[in-house]
Simulated scan of single mutants.
Amino acid sequence: MSALTLLGFGAGGWGAALLAAAATTLALALCGFAAGAVLGAAAAAAKLSGAAPLRALADVYTTVLRGVPDLLVIYLLYFGGSTALGTVAGWFGATGFVGLPAFGVGVAALGIISGAYQAEVFRGATLALDRGQLEAARAVGMHRGLMLRRVVAPLVARTALPGLGNVWQILLKDSALVSVTGLVELLRQAQVGAGSTRQPFTFYLAAGALYLAITSLSTWGFSRAETRARRGLP
């Protein structure tokens, strides 16, 4: 069977399965990135706060999560969470292995991992703010919440965009690690196709092309967002 037939959408073709797996990869990365943005913003706020316990807790979070392998985090969440859930289920008479949903674990793991990196991006962007703009906002009578919404958040987002783009690209590739939980994302589907047809080069090359297409579109999107955010600036 030719490569075009294998990757096609006809009988015996794997095209639809690969595209569905690519959609799963994209959904996994998007959800993980969104969760990481929330965690990262909270950690950045803690790092910049005046409360020493909050700063220490945020420092531990970013140091540990950036210092251990991403695959280890996924293993700990999936198998550790499943073990804890099985223990709780055992209290009610259940037996056997109780697995957590692979997609949910993947989103949680990617969110926790990317949150550590996004925290540093947000912290750096906040420290780069022009203090004169903040003083001007206070001078016109803006309260803290209004200043955060109209001044601080837009300026931080503009400065953080390049760093967030890098985090997104790394996260997109890290999504392949979630296949160890059994989730059929793009790399896992390529492995299944390669094993079933004994055509590994064809399937891994197709998976690489799909990853490259997603990352290229992502690069273009972030570039457009950066250009739009910097309108009116020299």
Rank of each mutant, 00 (worst) to 15 (best):
T5L: 14
G8F: 01
G10S: 12
G10M: 09
A11E: 15
G12D: 12
G13T: 10
W14C: 00
L19M: 02
L19G: 05
A20E: 14
A21V: 06
A22C: 12
T24Y: 00
T25K: 00
L26K: 01
L26G: 00
A29H: 08
F33K: 07
A35N: 02
A37W: 08
A37H: 00
G40C: 12
A41M: 03
A41V: 09
A44N: 13
A45L: 15
L48C: 07
L48F: 01
G50D: 14
A52H: 06
P53C: 11
L54H: 02
T62E: 10
T62L: 04
V64W: 03
L65R: 13
G67Q: 08
D70S: 09
L72W: 04
L76G: 11
L77E: 11
Y78A: 03
G80S: 09
G80I: 13
S82Q: 07
T83N: 13
T83K: 09
A84T: 05
L85K: 11
A89T: 15
G96Y: 06
F97G: 04
F97A: 07
G99S: 14
A109H: 14
L110I: 10
S114H: 05
S114K: 07
Q118V: 08
A119F: 03
V121D: 07
F122V: 06
T126S: 14
A128W: 11
L129I: 10
G132N: 05
L134W: 07
E135L: 08
A136W: 12
A139H: 13
R144L: 08
G145A: 13
L146A: 15
L146D: 15
L148C: 06
R150K: 13
V152N: 04
V152T: 15
L155V: 09
R158Q: 03
R158H: 00
T159K: 10
T159E: 10
A160Y: 11
G163A: 06
G163N: 11
G165E: 10
G165W: 07
N166M: 01
W168H: 01
I170W: 00
L172S: 11
A176Y: 06
G182E: 01
L183T: 07
V184G: 00
E185F: 03
L187W: 06
L187N: 03
Q189S: 04
V192Y: 04
G193R: 02
S196Q: 13
T197G: 11
F201A: 13
A206I: 00
A207Y: 05
A209I: 14
L210H: 08
L210F: 09
Y211L: 09
A213T: 15
T215M: 09
L217W: 09
L217M: 12
F222Q: 14
R230I: 04
L233H: 05
P234V: 12
